[in-house]
Design a protein around this nucleic acid. Structure first.
Lengths: 228, 228, 228, 228
DNA sequence: GATGAATGAGGATTCATTCAT
DNA sequence: CATGAATGAATCCTCATTCAT
């Protein structure tokens, strides 16, 4: 009982805060840094909870507990539950976008590039927390147009544009025969998306070898690879 | 829809009981019939609401209002909100299953059959309430394992088995070259699923010509069709 | 579904009802009789439920089920739940009152008479449904002044008056020495009441030999009996 | 009672924390203290309501209103209505138990001691809120076995044991002749219990001079007192 | 008279949000 | 800045009562 034993006493003299060690030693962990850490912890915790329960069924209490902060603290970082959700998606999506933009060099064949991309997707998205986020967006999209908008604008449309460019290049180079494919990059991506959804819904009924499936799909598009 | 449409009309003439189908086409509406109608109205209304808001955010009150019944009436048909959701999915899915089982004749080529199937899917699922239901299942699946189970068992596994059989037949007949495709019927279905999701999330940003996309996809799998 | 298979068909021809055996044989069971039976069944069922759960927690649904009638039927006999409770107590109490009035002959000693009375109370009240009713009245009395009033008027005051008369007689005859006892017949009755309450609350923790206790109490009041 | 009585007063002067008892008698009111006060207010209010209406008919809303807190606050102190009731009885009973344990010295005669006890009971229980609690336990006991258990264990069995010891002592000293009384301390207590119940049910029909009744009862057991 | 489906007011409980400390 | 006690609107569910059959 009787928490808050400080406050009054530290009010003025409290230039130093907990972690403070000596004078200059570890000036790090400034107030701003600690705030950022807290925010990160909240985002992380919120992700977990929203993915596990969906937006409406998630309790701020649980997020706070998981993040190790008090409920009120959340409101220092986010206006309310709704905008927390929206900002959350943004925050988590941004790095993904960054990576998309950082197109790899593109030296060998288009297929090699796409295969590399697929492998990366396999490791980083399918069956991971990030994959669950995709499912979450599918789930909550209709109730959060701004989220769907953002996701479309930042991820989908860019990804599609990139894919389309690659497909066109592959067609030009003769790697892909089906010329109409360029109009529907979705076809190229579809199995990957299905894999994402499959893993969160049906994995336990029927495990899916996503890597092999994606390989087959690429074979279908690029023609079977002559095994080296 | 169709609330108490009779009553006044049957008041006197209805000396005969239930199934009465005499005279015109009007009466019918025995107590049992009315109950069934009510249940149907509730199911219908619940569908709309759950699709629009998700499970947790849907208010029983709104379902009742939309169905034109009192709140309490819902509890005459369903134990609680949760089992209503579960039964609802079952109820709506069953007819779909029935249709899946009613395999079409299969006379011409496999491609023709699949194309017919795709066209049907296009009309009946993509962009319709039924399509939204699929998205709903994707959204709520993790929180309703029984729903995901049911859906997997009744729809996914059966659909996959059927597709696999068709693919194998097509391979045997030489319609499809990629032999590994039989291991992943998901690849065949993926674009259709993507179309379903696309329509509810991104249609307004970028309309998708699902029919054309599916055609391209089939061309990819079966080889381009020599336009008659 | 569709119960009520009779009604219309029996409407006129139904002079005979279930129990009806032969023509004149048992003309009884007229409509009025059946109604009375139903009412009795409801009263009986209500007693059980009210005793087990108290007034507020008892569901009319359960009473109806236990009585084997439809919920609506209850309203043909009672205005509402509240007055059902009140009438119920009256109905059940009346026979008790009748018996109280039917004072036994009074031949031998007053002690013999009271002992006989105690034994009767032991058999008919303590540890029985009737005893539970007493507890029920204690429980609901404050919320049902009319019930408490009725009980006081019909049972308590009469019982007290009767006891007082007996005590005075016993004092006059020299059976009881403590003259002031006539002012507090409650003292004479108290252990019996305690036994009633004890049986429904603590019997399972510590069984009480009510008969022996009452004997000891009478010994206390009348002096120990010279064992014959 | 006593809602936030401080606050304004302590605002500035309260550089020192909690238990502050300086200056006048006012401040104190730390957060923990305030919580305790609130809990006490809820317990107090709940007592009143439960006694007045019984468990099932009592509305949490009314308790909150009477306690001067919001509905939700109750749930910060109690898990639900049921455990509130159970804890409530415990909370209120405990001090009583404490007093029972604090046996008085026992100098003079046993009768004097019991008389003192009776007078205390008269003042503290009969016709008071505490007496009503006894009636409440009788009323709700069957539906709250844990409450009946607790009450039996903490109050009844202890009280009975104490009474039995006194009775045996009185018998040994020759103050009481009826040796069997030791087997049924209930007889000694019965009139007091009856008085408790009488006051809440019939007081307004026929007021009872409980003190006088208890005196007569003790005369019956110990023999008439030779008025000094 | 009987029935039981339908009603909707009422009440327990939850949880996002606020704010004094 | 951080905290978490307090709030009360919102929501699920129950159940006494009605009434068409």
């Amino acid at each position: 009982m009787t928490k808050t034993p400080t406050k009054a006493a530290t009010a003025k003299a409290a230039t130093h805060k907990p972690e403070t060690r000596g004078e200059a030693a570890a000036p790090a962990s400034s107030r701003a840094t600690r705030a950022a850490e807290r925010r990160a912890a909240i985002v992380e915790a919120a992700m977990e909870e929203f993915i596990a329960r969906g937006f409406a069924a998630t309790r701020l209490d649980d997020i706070a507990k998981r993040a190790g902060v008090a409920k009120g603290t959340i409101y220092l970082h986010f206006k309310d539950k709704e905008s927390m959700f929206e900002e959350l998606v943004r925050t988590v999506i941004v790095p993904v976008v960054a990576r998309l933009n950082a197109l790899p060099p593109l030296t060998g064949s288009v297929r090699d590039l796409i295969e590399a991309f697929a492998n990366n997707f396999l490791k980083e998205v399918i069956g991971t927390r990030r994959g669950d986020l995709v499912r979450l967006i599918v789930a909550e999209g209709p109730r959060f147009p701004s989220v769907a908008d953002f996701y479309y604008r930042e991820v989908v449309s860019r990804g599609m544009a990139g894919m389309r460019a690659l497909i066109e290049l592959a067609i030009a180079r003769g790697e892909i025969r089906e010329r109409d494919l360029a109009r529907y990059p979705q076809i190229l991506i579809a199995p990957a998306m299905i894999a994402v959804i499959w893993q969160s819904l049906f994995a336990r009924h029927a495990p899916l070898d996503a890597q092999d499936m994606l390989r087959v799909h690429l074979d279908l598009i690029f023609g079977e690879r002559r095994t080296t």
